[in-house]
Amino acid sequence: MSESALLHIDNITTSYGPIEALHKVSLQVEEGELVAIVGANGAGKSTLLRTLSALIPPKSGTIHFAGEAITALPPHQIVKRGICQVPEGRELFRPLTVEDNLLLGSYALKGDEQWVTERLAAIYTLFPILYERRRQAAGTLSGGQQQMLAIGRALLGRPRLLLLDEPSMGLSPLLVEEIFRVITTLNREGVTILLVEQNARMALTVANRGYVLETGRVVATASAHELLQDDAVRRAYLGY
């Protein structure tokens, strides 16, 4: 792990009023990696992603992205630099059409029409169902389709780093596998991904490296393979 990492989080502390949700969390993501953050409910996983997207300001610590300090930037500046988030619960624009939702993902890339058109076509190839339903309101899609739309929308932001918050939430086991297949494909195509999951086994199966978060602290970090073998992690998060 070097200073040249794409994302470099150093000693971040974030709190909601007097309650600390993250305590001196440090973490790195290298270009091209798929890193998983696993942990129980309330461990601070979503808070970490929200801090990264500047939706909550951290109390202390620094965040560097591609060598630039981004700790004090507002959310729209973060997106402009290529950090795109698929928020927990998907947060789609339900009354808007599927296509409008996708195009909103490219909001920060003003002007690059041609790239957006090409990328939109690519997303429709990746998720043909979205093409079929492109004129339909996003709220009428099924859970799995909505998750695909949320991922597609983030991909239209030309992410250098894709943040995924609980992509498996509320989906049937079959759909979870489908979504994770998509995540692996994207990563193989070169998208750097930071994945937050309660479904630790799934996440660690696809990831290169993992961090275990417990009550706002990083308690373990290793290659995903090692974490899957680790006795403490297995007992706490994998249930065997």
Binding site: S53, P75, V79, C84, E91, F93, R94, L96, D100, A108
Partner: peptide
């Protein structure tokens, strides 16, 4: 229209 639906989501879109 996006911020009408959800300001939070609109912010995550940049």
């Amino acid at each position: 229209r996006a911020l009408h639906t959800s300001e939070f989501a609109a912010e995550t879109m940049g």
